[in-house]
Computed example of a mutant assay.
Amino acid sequence: MGAGTGPRGSRPTVADVAREAGVSVATAGRALGGYGRVREDLRARIREAADRLGYSPNAIARSMRSGGTRSIGFIGADIANPYFAAAMRGVCDVARAEGYEAILFNVDDRLDVERNAVQVLLDKQIDGIVVSPTSVTDVGHLRRAQERGVPVVLLDRTSPLVDADSVVIDNVAAARGATAHLLDRGHRRIGLLASIDPAEGPELVAAPGGAGLGVRGAARPSVDRIRGFLAALDERAVTADRELVRFGPFLDVTTAEREAVALLSLPDPPTAVFAAENVTTQGLYTAARRCGRAVPGDLSLVGFDDLDWTSLVDPPVTVVAQSPIDMGRAAAERLFRRIKGDDAPRERIVLPTRLVVRSSTAEL
Rank of each mutant, 00 (worst) to 15 (best):
G214W: 05
V14A: 14
G36K: 10
R37N: 14
A85I: 04
E363Y: 03
G76A: 13
F84V: 06
A50S: 10
L351A: 06
L32K: 08
A77M: 11
D138W: 13
R227G: 00
P221A: 03
D123G: 15
I103H: 02
V131Q: 02
R70S: 03
G283H: 06
V215L: 08
T281M: 01
V152E: 04
V350H: 01
A330S: 14
V168I: 11
A102P: 08
T281S: 08
E40G: 09
A330E: 15
V313Q: 09
R337W: 03
T310N: 01
A87E: 04
T179E: 08
L312C: 06
L192R: 12
L284I: 14
L192P: 13
D165G: 00
G140N: 12
R289F: 02
D314E: 15
D184K: 05
E333L: 10
A272G: 09
I349Q: 04
P296H: 06
R70V: 07
V25H: 04
A26Q: 10
L154E: 00
D127Q: 07
E147G: 15
R337M: 12
V107H: 07
F105N: 08
R157L: 00
V261E: 07
A237K: 15
G228P: 14
A275W: 02
D305F: 14
R37C: 01
E277C: 10
I72V: 15
S135Y: 05
G2E: 03
M64D: 05
I190D: 08
F336Y: 08
R334C: 02
T353E: 10
I190L: 13
R220H: 07
E277A: 06
V152T: 12
E235S: 11
A31C: 03
E101P: 00
A232Q: 01
A288P: 05
L213R: 04
A145Q: 15
N106H: 11
P208G: 01
E259T: 14
G68T: 12
N106S: 11
S359L: 10
G191H: 12
A86Y: 04
V152F: 13
G140I: 05
L263A: 02
Y35A: 15
S66N: 12
L121S: 12
T280A: 09
G186L: 07
H187F: 03
A26S: 14
K124S: 10
R110K: 08
V136T: 12
V17R: 01
E235G: 09
Y55V: 06
R157D: 01
